[in-house]
Amino acid sequence: MSTASSGDPLVDLLMASLTRRKATGQVVSGEHAGREAARWMADAGVARAVLASDPVVDAIGLPDALRREGIDVIMWPTGLGKREAMGLEGPIDVCGVTVPALAVAERGTVVLEASEGHGRGLDVTSRHHVALLPTDRIVRTLGEALALTFADGRPAPSAVSLVSGPSRSSDIEKISTLGAHGALTEHVVIIR
């Protein structure tokens, strides 16, 4: 149930920025979000999904939707050994599923905060990265996002990652090549 234009200027701006950053995005309603996210992963050839333990994941029924697509589901914390957690053992096509605290529309950035339910390496250790983003978490500028994340009186999270598109390197002949160390693909499911 994705739509080309959402009617929300911030959502449209974020979609345009994600495209520019070589990420993809789709806007879906809450009732279809789980199914759409699972279908995207199945199409990408994902064999295993590692999910952040977050209310949003359950609210859209993602674990069941993934199992229906035949994808192995592991919740964070995974208890996997280090080599398997880094994709050196076990299935190669692993997808890290994150729930960003915020997103920056202007530059296509998702803001990931480390917590008990949300590993700081969830997206980079995997081959694919899917972010589940409720629309009310989108702000326009990086300044707004950082002001909210590090607001006075709120304890600073141990790790915050600003992720703007899939991993890339320009170290060989200055030409941008995707999939250096982190995820080769990034897909943002924007949930209305």
Binding site: R120, S158, V160, S161, L162, S164, P166, S167
Partner: peptide
């Protein structure tokens, strides 16, 4: 306009 990853780290886990 953005680095791909910006890691903001405050102390250990």
């Amino acid at each position: 306009d953005a680095a791909n990853y910006v890691n903001l780290i405050t102390g250990p886990r």
